[in-house]
Amino acid sequence: MPLKINLYHEVLLAKKQQQYDPLKISLLGLIVVAIFLAGYYFVELAKKRGAVSAYQARQTEYERLLPLAKEAKLLEERLNKQIELADRLSKRIEERFYWAPIFEQVTGTVPKNVQITKLGADVNQETPRTCHILVDGLAAGVEPRAVAEDVRTALVEKFSKKFQNVTATFKSLDDSNETVVWEGKQMRTAVFSINIAFNATVEQAPAPVARQGGRKPKS
């Protein structure tokens, strides 16, 4: 068996030691970790810049909108007040109580043998609006009290057609000493005073009902 002597073993060992130098390996490892950390830092930096720029863009948008919104709020408040006022005015105008129809109803109800001596009325402005009418008069006839009663019931009937909760009561009904000539006959008279009260609130017209089975729109 031939004898082999390695005369370079020291050189080879030194080479091997240099190749696997732990310091060198650690340094390489550190460089790799440093590159990774630096990369991660830049990724995070980009994310932060993105978030900040998005916030700044929205902040600029908000700063642009804020004065507009304040102005819009003031405008809206002012317009709402105007709209409210206009609504109230039109409601006041539309819901006025008209007296002319009352005159018409009273004159249409009173027969020729009754004379109205006093007619007074008032309406309160609160809701529910109540109207009070006072009718004083002189009824002539064979039975003047019955004539006065007919007037009272006729007034209730007439007003009930248009208003709700109509009541008519005699405040007074007295026979009078005076007599009148009616259609050539001497008639007895009675003095009466009738109080009429009713709910004079104007009712809103119901909303129109949608037609069933109307014409289909052309497509």
Binding site: R58, A72, K73, L75
Partner: peptide, 25 residues
């Protein structure tokens, strides 16, 4: 921002009704 946009839109809606009101007043 949504509130501000809503406020502006709301004012525009009210403004659209304003000519009728102004006419009545």
């Amino acid at each position: 921002i949504a509130t501000a946009n809503g406020q502006i839109a709301s004012a525009k809606n009210v403004e659209a009704k304003a000519p009728e009101t102004t006419k009545l007043l």
